[in-house]
């Protein structure tokens, strides 16, 4: 996951004259930051995450246990008991729901890490301005955020997948690829959220609205707990535009070999990758605008 940092520096203009020593030193001194600046910003985020590492770990371990048990064991008993052990798209309910829960976990990491740290950096504790006063560039600040969230999401999804294995919810040998489908889901949705959050100069409840009116309905109507086909046609569009639906369907292909045309799997990947790129570029542009006043 690399994006090109800003263009390479050019040699100082001829006007530099007597300053060429200082200018040459400056250019030398900036080489590392130009190349690795995004990682330095990620390093900052990791250090901050360390201060709430316990929360990260407890949710990363607690969530899969609770959800897989409640849905995959509790609700599944009811579903499988009434409909038969292969009634939901040909598999038992636990196997059906687990990949969706995995993707939802990625979405919940995204909705945390792509909102408050962005508000914080631009507004509440404007550390982005501090970074921007160093050789770090606005685009690198956004890149660093993306890198750090991707890392946390990978850990969360990896642990989640581990519990899915323990619950016996992954019949397919390609199951581990569901981790990356979930990562793409979380990052695709998260990048858009980051783009939107970066435009907020004040949080007067917008983020709470996003949680309530976008993330919650998305979780319920993305083929998460029941196949999208069960929804009336006029509601299915929610699924089609939902990154969670695309990610979940892709995860199911990997986790238990759910049957869908190959072109549709390709669409899932392209759709999520497109969201990721759009959100990423959007946030980078806003960062340049906000930090260069």
């Amino acid at each position: 996951m690399s994006t090109p940092d800003a263009a390479r520096p050019q040699a100082p203009a001829a006007s530099a004259g007597g300053q060429s020593d200082a200018a040459a030193r400056a250019i030398r001194a900036t080489r590392n930051s130009r190349r690795w600046g995004s990682w330095y910003v990620a390093e900052h985020r990791f250090r901050v995450m360390r201060s709430y590492a316990q929360t990260v770990l407890v949710t990363a371990i607690g969530n899969p246990v609770i959800y897989l048990y409640a849905m995959g064991v509790g609700l599944a008993t009811l579903v499988d008991g009434n409909l038969g052990a292969d009634a939901v798209t040909g598999v038992d309910y636990l196997t059906f729901v687990a990949p969706a829960l995995l993707c939802s976990a990625a979405i919940s990491v995204a909705s945390e890490e792509f909102t408050y740290p962005v508000m914080l950096g631009f507004k509440w504790n404007p550390v982005f301005y501090g970074m921007n006063a160093s050789p770090i560039q606005p685009g690198q600040i956004i890149n660093g955020l993306v890198i750090s969230v991707a890392a946390r999401m990978l850990v969360t999804c990896g642990l989640y997948f581990g519990f899915m294995l323990l619950f016996g919810a992954v019949p397919s040998p390609t199951g581990f690829l569901a981790i990356f489908a979930a990562l793409l889901t979380g990052m695709g949705f998260g990048a858009l959220l980051m783009g939107y959050t970066s435009t907020l100069t004040e949080d007067t409840g917008q983020l709470a609205m996003v949680m309530r009116f976008i993330i919650l309905p998305m979780t319920l109507f993305s083929g998460t707990f029941f196949p999208l086909d069960l929804l009336p046609l006029y509601l299915r569009w929610i699924g089609w535009i939902s990154p969670l639906w695309h990610g979940t369907e892709l995860s199911r292909v990997f986790a238990y070999g759910a049957v869908e045309p190959v072109w549709l799997s390709v669409v899932h990947v392209l759709y999520l990758a497109a969201l990721l790129m759009i959100g990423w570029v959007w946030a980078r542009r806003v960062a340049v605008r906000r930090l260069n006043k």
């Binding site: 006007s15 200018a23 600046g37 560039q137």
Partner: peptide
């Protein structure tokens, strides 16, 4: 011109040589 460099073209280079107390 800061240290012989133009901020429009060499922002990061200039900032690498500055200390800023906002």
């Amino acid at each position: 011109s800061v240290l012989g460099l133009d901020p429009d073209r060499h922002g990061p280079e200039i900032r690498s040589q500055l200390g800023v107390v906002p």
